[in-house]
Simulated assay, not measured.
Amino acid sequence: MDALARHLAHLHAWLLPWRCLLCGDAGGDGLDLCHACAAELPRNTSCCARCALPLPRAAATCGRCQRKPPPWDAAWAPFRYGWPLDRLEARYKFGRDLAAGRTLARLWRCVPPPLARPTLILPVPLHRSRLRQRGYNQALELARPLGRALGVPVRHDGLLRVRATEAQTELDAAARRRNVRGAFALREGRVLPAHVVLLDDVMTTGATLAECARVLKRAGVARVEVWALARAPAPRQRPL
């Protein structure tokens, strides 16, 4: 960090001290999170290499990916979707809390990607009606600072959401797949490189990312990876 950057950081800390968005205590390390809350963030260190599904112990691929591999080539999700990250994500995505979004973006930038650097990052697009309603694309706002940190360009207009879909939140896995079928398309005339990352904020079943990956594969992209800030665990099976 150069002298000007250090000076600006000290000035920010004096004028607008960092405050934990979760408990209200003083923030630490240039984050709106205290050290205690930051330590509780669920890291996704043991997961499937193909779909990033959290696993109880390290494994190359989970059973589902062995039976039916997804249409992408690899996945990276540095966090598990659980307390307290899920609180920050909900505030950012549904509560228009941009401070929570900045905190999530900085957390992501601090984790080095385990995969080879891509040529291009494509955030999962929102339909124009959802974009008007929310005011911003949460995936794009996470992708921009990550792309700058990695030196990888981010293109917000490579993929289009050509059909409005229901919110995925309350749908089961099968309904999610039906909901997004045919909902995405490549912008006409767009030429993509051989190594592309699809980026989203949270991966639950992977239905949305899978549909986007199929579009890219059909367009001739050789390697498609999916990156998400957080990966939801597999739903618990009901006892018989």
Rank of each mutant, 00 (worst) to 15 (best):
G28R: 13
G28L: 04
D29M: 02
G30S: 06
G30Y: 05
L31T: 00
D32R: 09
L33D: 07
L33F: 06
L33N: 08
C34W: 10
C34R: 00
A36P: 06
A36W: 11
A38I: 08
A39S: 15
A39N: 12
A39M: 10
A39Y: 11
L41G: 07
P42D: 04
P42R: 00
R43I: 11
N44D: 09
N44A: 11
T45W: 11
S46E: 14
S46R: 15
S46P: 01
C47Q: 14
C47T: 08
C47V: 05
C48H: 06
A49H: 11
C51D: 08
P54E: 12
P54R: 09
L55H: 03
L55G: 04
P56M: 03
P56H: 05
R57K: 08
A58D: 03
A59H: 03
A59W: 03
A60S: 08
T61M: 12
R64F: 02
R64E: 02
C65K: 08
Q66W: 10
Q66N: 07
P70A: 03
P70Q: 03
P71F: 02
P71D: 04
W72M: 00
W72F: 12
D73V: 01
A75I: 04
P78T: 08
P78K: 05
F79M: 10
R80W: 06
Y81D: 00
Y81C: 00
Y81W: 13
G82T: 06
P84K: 01
R87D: 12
A90L: 11
R91L: 13
Y92H: 02
Y92P: 05
K93A: 01
K93Y: 04
K93P: 08
F94W: 13
L98T: 15
L98F: 15
A99P: 02
A99K: 02
A99Y: 03
A100N: 02
A100G: 01
G101S: 09
R102D: 10
L104Q: 13
A105V: 01
R106H: 10
L107Q: 01
V111F: 02
P113Q: 10
P113E: 12
P113W: 11
P114R: 00
A116G: 05
A116K: 10
R117H: 08
R117L: 14
